[in-house]
Design a binder for these strands. Structure first.
Lengths: 220, 220
DNA sequence: ACAATTATATGAGATATCTCATATTTTTGC
DNA sequence: GCAAAAATATGAGATATCTCATATAATTGT
């Protein structure tokens, strides 16, 4: 984690204004920080000093189970808060967040702003809405994962993440996200290829039969 | 749904005070309502008029998938809010909530109180904490369900819900909650019986080997 | 008290998914 | 540019879980 100094700090603060999320001037409190790809924003078990507002880049939210298995709970995209639960509950961080790309965050120091934030209806209302939307998303995915086999969820995910009918996500990330083994993901990708629905092209997959892919996804 | 009239209304309001969750006197706005077992508190797709605060009884939060499969997302116990997401987002209700027992709720009418509530830092802070805790619970369970086979999760669930080493939950509810088929739940219960870990007694199961059950649960 | 609904129970066969082993290719750090 | 690490790829066999069929027992509404 690297703190950006002026003038870079001001550049980002002006590019991603968050004044309106608060009823008081937050800018003087804000630091701008940069994380390299693969760096941990929060490690499991640590007590965070900052709440972060992700403005550029992508990160992954993990939890480590007692048996050592690691589950990818969610991808985090800008704009999103991170560490807000710890602000509220005064707990140590129970999840790990690791960057998937270079990441820029606005950092709000917890110790100096906590009291103000917890009395600020503007901020709290925003946070409530943020939390409730996140909850809706997560529980939907949770229910889907239980109710449908991988082939349907994968069809849906391919359609969602393909760019110009070209799917090129990392298998290692996707299998964690969809909650299946790496091996099984490749099985099902191969199955979609066998049926001529997608076609493998060295490092990516081309969508060949969008109708049938949508048909499969519709069952989700 | 039945509105309770005085003096019953006041009895419940005094028994379960929620004044302290708000910065203004909420009591004049509150109705007390009663739901019979099996009644729907929210139906999927409806626009709710009230936010409820569950004070007595137990309810179940469902979502219906596109293929008609119904997933039990969570058991709801007192005290808990219901319909808070709709208050925040002005959306129609996307989940169904059905009572599992007779239920008593404090009902806060949305139309007349919404503006006040969304400016009330006391309430919003409480709601943020409530939402964030719920989120932590749900994502933990979500990750567990993906990472462990039923035998481990069931062992954990039996220990959690058994009363004096006697487990007597309804299979129909448990299989939905744990996200497996009824058939498979019975398979695994039978397996635990075969291994002498639990013993079937007509309508319930007696824990016979608590150590091994804890061992299995520990792997969760 | 009886009919209707809901919950329990079990078998058989199919399928979805996992683990482990192992090889190759690509990316990354220095 | 090279060594190490990460990602891709594939096979074989095991197991967790599902679907469907069917029977009985318990609970509920009237």
């Amino acid at each position: 984690m690297q703190f950006l100094i002026e003038p870079m700090r001001s550049v980002y603060i002006e590019k991603y204004p968050i004044e309106s999320l608060f009823s008081f001037p937050i800018t003087p409190y804000i630091q701008v920080v940069q994380f390299e790809r693969g760096e941990f924003i929060f490690k499991e078990g640590s007590y965070p000093d900052y709440m972060f507002y992700l403005v550029e880049g992508k990160a992954k939210l993990y939890v480590t189970q007692k048996n050592g298995k690691v589950s990818l709970l969610n991808f985090l995209h800008a704009p999103t808060f991170m560490g807000e639960i710890e602000l509220l509950n005064e707990e140590r961080y129970s999840r790990g967040i690791q960057t998937a790309t270079k990441v820029i965050c606005l950092a709000i120091p917890i110790h100096t702003t906590k009291d103000k934030l917890l009395k600020d209806a503007t901020f709290l209302k925003y946070l409530c809405i943020f939390l409730s939307k996140k909850q809706t998303t997560i529980t939907s995915r949770y229910a889907e994962n239980q109710a449908f086999p991988l082939i349907n969820r994968l069809a849906s995910f391919i359609l969602l993440s393909a760019d110009h009918d070209l799917y090129k996500e990392k298998h290692t990330e996707v299998c964690e996200y969809l909650g299946v083994s790496y091996r099984h993901l490749l099985h099902v990708l191969a199955q979609l290829c066998d049926e001529g629905i997608i076609e493998k092209q060295s490092r990516s997959y081309k969508i060949r039969d969008k109708n049938r892919l949508q048909q499969l996804a519709k069952e989700v």
